[in-house]
Amino acid sequence: MIRLIRIELKKILPYRAFWLLAGFYALSLTFTLIVSQVIINKILLEAGKSAPIPLLKISLYQFPRVWNNLTYMAGFLTLFLAIIVIFFVCNEFSNKTLRQNIINGLSRKEFILSKLYFILIFSLAATLLIFLIGLILGLIHSNDVDIGEIFSSRLQFILGYFIEVFTYLVFAFFIAFLLKKAGLAVITLLFYTMIEQIIIWWKIPSEYVKFFPMKAFGRLVHFPRIPLPEINGQSIRFQDYVSILDSAIALLYAGIFVLLIYLLIRKRDL
């Protein structure tokens, strides 16, 4: 396992395009998080001018709700991470280094494993990034910081986010492995997401929606927590926890895609 991880790290760490994309992701993530807060407050400020009661400025990033909101918003940018994975995997095809790796003595199974380890580490890094951003934003936006609030049960959203990213990236790995060409894989990923959404709108009863792959990968943290007052006496049903069923469905899909990749690489001439 250590050997396979080392191989992957030697392949990717000196790769400048990887750092560019990863840096771009980190920047756009930070930017999105800060700007969305500003925009929401702008809207509230405008609305407050005509409202009978003054609306308070809100903060999305107070402990402990920061964990929920942050992971929810970061979910929109996971596509970037998927694109990085797709490029990295498809490179092995376009440079024919997969073929060379096998000739040199890597087994096909080891190749798949090494890429899965990479995705695992990459997901962990993305999760760590969110955690650190959450910590910083939370400290900035909370007045009285209580350790219990930082490390509250809401921290499970970070775990949910990790599963979300990992399973989604496994799906991206599958698409990349199936199609071999990066451009085609990215387009297919986007196109598939759209098609699935259309099918769901069109025909699928809501109780089955969670069984669709893209929904499964995106549902773990699917609702933000905004400190809004009750509307017409009805409070919004916020998401309080990461559903175990949803996690299981996402992980099951990931398992199925790994299996498909394995079957593909066994049958395929490289």
Partner: peptide, 20 residues
Amino acid sequence: LFYPYLSPLQNLKVLSLIKE
């Protein structure tokens, strides 16, 4: 066939890890 963005030394390093 080698990794185009790696140097000869880095490519040989990857190879040595594969070949143990």
